[in-house]
Design a protein around this nucleic acid. Structure first.
Lengths: 232, 232
DNA sequence: CTGCCTCTGTGGTCTAACCACACTGTAATC
DNA sequence: GATTACAGTGTGGTTAGACCACAGAGGCAG
């Protein structure tokens, strides 16, 4: 077993045993190296991996943002992983979209009325009406979908859904320029969002799921996403 | 931007541009370091991250297994990430199980009859009838479920489904000892597997999905999985 | 032809040093 | 006394250079 894997194992045990909790701080790299009788290099490789997994965040200097802190951001980590695998042509973009439809439809059907996430979603829709540029709109759109997914109360589903979106974010973002009429598309998306939220609030999960599926598939289809980009 | 992130970016570009394909070999760590004008340490940190993502595999020595090779194993990588987040108590085991039921039901409903994966699944069931010990049985069981998921033809869903299973594999494995009567459970699981495969082959996707959901939930419920393990 | 042995290139590990950064405490200054 | 300037301390980030184990390739004796 490689040295950095020993370090990983040690840290995972600290987490499992509860000796290290969310928001907690890992010992300094030099201290950990001495404690485990390994080099700082190996400790750093382990920390790098945990950072890529979204389990810790490393910060220089001193103070509240300094040191290596335990966080919980599986979404961005899973997103990066999926994005790389898309780059290798192992995961087709179409499968990513299909899976996103699956997860998000499920979440829309199960969304619980009255949770704060739905109120946030409604607030986001209001902000989207006032959004001036495309980038702002898309950022708010992402947050709306995440909020909606979170309303279902399954953190794994919402993390995966966010990661799927993130994996093809750049790729899809480039294609928004291909849209024939952004103003029209934007208006349509806004209307669809309202309809989805209304269905959820009316406890009509089935309809909400249908609307979400059509909403996502419609956007990607219009943007021309779904087939793999050709090799140059 | 940190140095190892530059290296990651460079490698990702090589993948996106198709200059580096699945099965291809990365330049040696020393060569890459010189080419990018960074230290070997930074190159190694980037490679470590890619390895954790299941994008490459590093092998010492020389010959076919040597060097850093591009692979495509998102399943195990996602599984490790989820397992760590379960350790931090951020992702409840119950959500993992629920998501697995969601993905696997969908896959069972969409499984295409006639694909080689279904034949493999059938062969695995035969092997399971002859399996002597629990570990062998569980390993074959895992492969059966993966094969079934792959029959739906969505590589993202099958990768995620495999990773969910892997994330709680050890945890659930320890609990099989709690089963009141393994022989009886084993016989039941085998029968359920047969029923699922039969439903799929009869093009009865709806029934297959129901059976899969009951199968998974039943197992975890019997093993006592679903509530978070108490802190010591 | 066979077997051994050196050579070469791979990743794996370690040491020791330096850097940039952000806070902390102290001391000089107004 | 309050304020400002500055050295001190500890954090992760980066680098250079060395050595190790490993596995194949090729030469060399037998």
């Amino acid at each position: 077993m490689r040295t950095h894997e020993l370090v990983l194992q040690w840290i995972e045990k600290q987490l499992s045993d509860g000796d290290l909790a969310l928001g907690g701080r890992l010992p300094g790299e030099r201290a950990m190296a001495e404690q485990l009788q390994v080099s700082r290099t190996s400790v750093r490789e382990a920390v790098r991996i945990l950072e890529a997994m979204g389990v810790v965040r490393a910060g220089v200097g001193s103070g509240k943002d300094a040191g290596t802190v335990v966080i919980a951001e599986p979404g961005s980590a899973l997103g990066s992983t999926l994005r790389l695998h898309v780059a290798t042509r192992h995961l087709p973009v179409a499968d990513i979209v299909e899976t996103r439809v699956l997860l998000e439809s499920w979440a829309a059907e199960r969304a619980r009325v009255g949770v704060p996430e739905l109120e946030e979603a409604a607030a986001l829709l209001d902000q989207m009406d006032a959004a001036l540029d495309i980038d702002t709109f898309l950022a708010l759109d992402a947050r709306f979908h995440v909020a909606l997914a979170q309303a279902a109360g399954n953190s794994v589903v919402s993390a995966m859904m966010a990661s799927l979106r993130g994996a093809i974010e750049n790729y899809a973002g480039e294609l928004t320029g291909n849209l024939p009429d952004w103003e029209a598309t934007c208006a349509r998306l806004r209307a669809e969002h309202r309809a989805i939220l209304t269905a959820v609030n009316n406890n009509d999960g089935g309809k909400a799921a249908e609307l979400v599926a059509a909403h996502i598939q419609g956007f990607y289809k219009e943007a021309g996403v779904g087939s793999q980009p050709p090799l140059p």
